[in-house]
């Protein structure tokens, strides 16, 4: 039974994951001539990635996605801890979880465009700042800057960080937390020695679910970056629009490589203990 399931899983996984990735890597070593692939292999596409400044776009994207992920983690951990262990009423818990999903009812573009009226030169923030005499001239860097892109990315990515962490903290038996306190652990030690190690699977899942979609994000940089903050998603789209498949494929392969490296790093940090946590959950 287990064997059959496993073989089925590997077959489906191969069709939907391995084949596209293999083709992507293959394409990145081809060249385009008159809207069709040439026969020989070449590294021209990779050279183009570095020459055309798309390498800088990659670095900027990694930096923005990394910073936003780090901020989300900082916000989500205390929030998830409060929701999982602080809130005793399951009514309130269900309500807060429902509130977290409300933003998904409206499209990302509609939600994002609203920031413009808040951050623009004549927007809410600048009007308030000038009204209270804090600044003489409207602040420029609020909109169409990396600042506004970061800000715009924060809210849409919050649920993907919070939910896995919330679930993994919820699964921690209250008795373990009480046992730690009982043995003499002050709150910081309870957090560091018991809650965080046991919540690690959720934390890692949250980081991956948040960081990876951020790399491909197109809407927010386009609407709040105003053409000044170019990120990977848009870069690859524009390459595809001009039918430059090899360079698009090379850029994608590069990102895939970076993600693979990140994944291996995360496994090295938490791999062994994650297995132990799942073993330990068996009562």
């Amino acid at each position: 039974m287990l064997r059959t399931t496993l073989i089925l899983f590997i077959a489906v996984w191969a069709v939907f994951v391995v084949v596209p990735v293999a083709l992507l890597v293959l394409w990145s070593f081809l060249e385009m001539k008159d809207y069709s692939f040439s026969s020989g292999l070449s590294t021209a596409a990779y050279a183009a990635v570095f020459d055309s400044g798309r390498y800088e776009v990659t670095l900027r994207t990694l930096r923005i996605a990394g910073l936003v992920t780090a901020i989300e983690l900082g916000l989500a951990l205390p929030f998830a801890l409060w929701l999982a262990k602080g809130v005793r009423s399951s009514m309130l818990k269900a309500m807060v979880l429902a509130l977290l999903t409300v933003p998904f009812f409206i499209s990302l573009a509609s939600r994002t465009i609203v920031w413009r009226s808040v951050l623009s030169r004549s927007g809410l923030v600048n009007t308030a700042l000038m009204h209270f005499g804090i600044v003489e001239q409207p602040v420029d860097w609020l909109l169409f800057s990396e600042f506004s892109v970061h800000l715009g990315l924060l809210a849409p990515s919050f649920p993907t960080m919070v939910l896995p962490i919330f679930l993994s903290i919820s699964l921690i038996d209250d008795e373990l937390i009480e046992a730690a306190r009982d043995l003499g652990a002050p709150p910081a030690k309870v957090l560091g020695d018991v809650i965080l190690p046991l919540a690690l699977p959720g934390i890692i899942a949250g980081i991956i679910f948040t960081f990876v979609p951020l790399l491909g994000e197109t809407v927010v940089p386009q609407l709040l970056g105003g053409g000044r903050v170019s990120m990977l998603g848009a870069s690859i789209s524009s390459l595809l629009q001009v039918l430059n498949y090899p360079v698009a494929a090379a850029l994608s392969t590069l990102v895939l490589g970076i993600l693979a490296a990140l994944f291996i790093a995360l496994r090295l940090i938490g791999g062994g203990s994650i297995a132990a946590v799942f073993e330990g959950m068996k009562r």
Binding site: D182, E279, G280
Partner: peptide, 13 residues
């Protein structure tokens, strides 16, 4: 004081 809990409260990790 220390407590021996009903389900032992042993840290699985």
């Amino acid at each position: 004081v220390t407590t021996v809990f009903q389900h032992y409260g042993l840290f699985p990790h």
